[in-house]
Nucleic acid binder design. Structure first.
Lengths: 136, 136
DNA sequence: CCCACAAATGCGAATAGTTCTGATTTGCTT
DNA sequence: AAGCAAATCAGAACTATTCGCATTTGTGGG
């Protein structure tokens, strides 16, 4: 019973080979931001016989279970990352594609206030900054 | 030579029937936030024989010319709106789908600072608040 | 005012990303 | 180890969008 197995159990998900492998890939990947296709390729490269449909299904379940977060940058494929419980937003370099995480308590607070001012309650948000290196 | 014609000319675009009609639809629509499909239907309902491919092509040109803005809310189709030169972000009600515009100078300023702190220059951003009515 | 020619359009096919379907396999319960 | 629900596979389907190419449409020059 590995750590991954326990996480899956805790999330109420049956411990299956595809799910364990996908969880491992997400935990071990270097930049922590992978597309479904990236994961599919990683599986393919190692050994697996996991279909792309399963990758999507498993990622959706992981998201529902709070194990991973899904983000949509502009157009293009969604990216997935392990949810470590530390909320953050993203900055994407338009030249290199690099993704940088950041968190700003002030912005978070302002968002709440803005929603409240219109008679709403904030249930979520998506903030992506598109940036380029300063010296170009 | 209508107002729409002039706008198109100014943008360096040939004045064609599809372009004029699409511009009118965008200017006259009630909620100001339409999908390409919405526009296609509006054209179809009135009279036109404009293909969906043309709708997309024209919208892309309008965006490049600064006449309209395109936004991607989460997944689902992109929405387009006339660019009146007043920058704003969006709040989407998760229950009714209602879209509310807002602008907050403080958040804008903070975004610049955050990008700068990482050695980047802000070239754009996407901020969407997902909200629900306070009393539910 | 008309003509030529580039630019724009329509249609259908193609693409990208993602989800569904239905037959087969897998893993939990005993 | 058997049974059964849950999960998977492969491929088809779907949604949003773009492309290719034959045809049409504006526009500037004569």
């Amino acid at each position: 019973m590995t750590l991954e197995d326990q996480e899956l159990k805790k999330a109420g998900l049956k411990v299956t080979l595809p799910r364990v492998k996908i969880l491992q890939i997400l935990e071990n990947c270097s930049d922590r931001h992978m597309t479904a296709e990236d994961i599919y390729q990683a599986l393919r490269d190692s050994d697996g016989d996991v279909g792309i449909a399963t990758v999507y299904r498993v990622l959706t379940q992981f998201e529902a279970a709070g194990l991973v977060e899904r983000h949509n940058f502009d157009n293009g494929p969604a990216i997935y990352e392990i949810d470590r419980g530390e909320h953050h937003d993203h900055m994407v370099c338009t030249e290199t594609g690099k993704v940088i995480e950041f968190h700003d308590a002030e912005i978070e607070a302002l968002q709440e206030r803005i929603a409240a001012a219109q008679g709403y309650q904030l249930v979520g948000h998506s903030l992506v900054l598109y940036v380029k290196p300063k010296t170009s």
